[in-house]
Amino acid sequence: MTTPVVQARGIVKRYGHVTAIDHSDFELRAGEVLAVIGDNGAGKSSIVKAICGATIPDEGEILIEGKPVKFSSPIEARDMGIEIVYQNLALSPALSIADNMFTGREIRKKGWMGKILRMLDKPAMEKFARDKLTELGLMTVQSIKQPVETLSGGQRQGVAVARAAAFASKFIIMDEPTAALGVKESRKVLELIQDVRARGIPIILISHNMPHVFEVADRIHIHRLGKRLCTIDPKDYTMSDAVAFMTGAKEPPAQDAA
């Protein structure tokens, strides 16, 4: 078996008397969609935040492609090719689609205009943004220069996913990507997830929506009481099994179920 993309062992995070992560393990394999599910307060976002550097764990080790890492911020993780699609999308509504795709990693013009005047190469950025959106079948917007606030919820999600897909070389974390969307728009995002996976980029999908999880996930990481309860293959279990495991209504299978 190839080295997992992410391997975390014995992660602990305490906030005062509260233990958010309690000696939890985590594993993301190459090319897969791994769904992370769990009840509210189970700590599923905490464990994912620990992996991308948004919180710094007190104990435990994280290996990315076999190499131990210690991120102190999501920006460091991003520099390594780890992209996050936040639930609130982290887009600037008044800026254009192209500007938003390049926030924090703009392309400068070549020559003295870029070096001395630090001038942006807007045509190059717009072309790149248009290409990426077309690749993902999202070029339904009229203009790449239009502000993000004029887009629908699904289109905005599309821009955020396209941004992640364009720059991710290791993996993408998506936090509740369908939570705020309608049926049609959710479908589009699920197709996007499958598209991105087809390019070989693994995805960590945090979601409450069982039908969506069971549809796109290759494996499901069930989080309960601050640690990984088990990992299951969605083909072997039903949605009610998964819900039973995560709420503690049913004993989980052995750790290596999937």
Partner: peptide
Amino acid sequence: DDKEAADLSGIR
């Protein structure tokens, strides 16, 4: 526009 979003998208 949105300071939090700017933070998350990697602006110092």
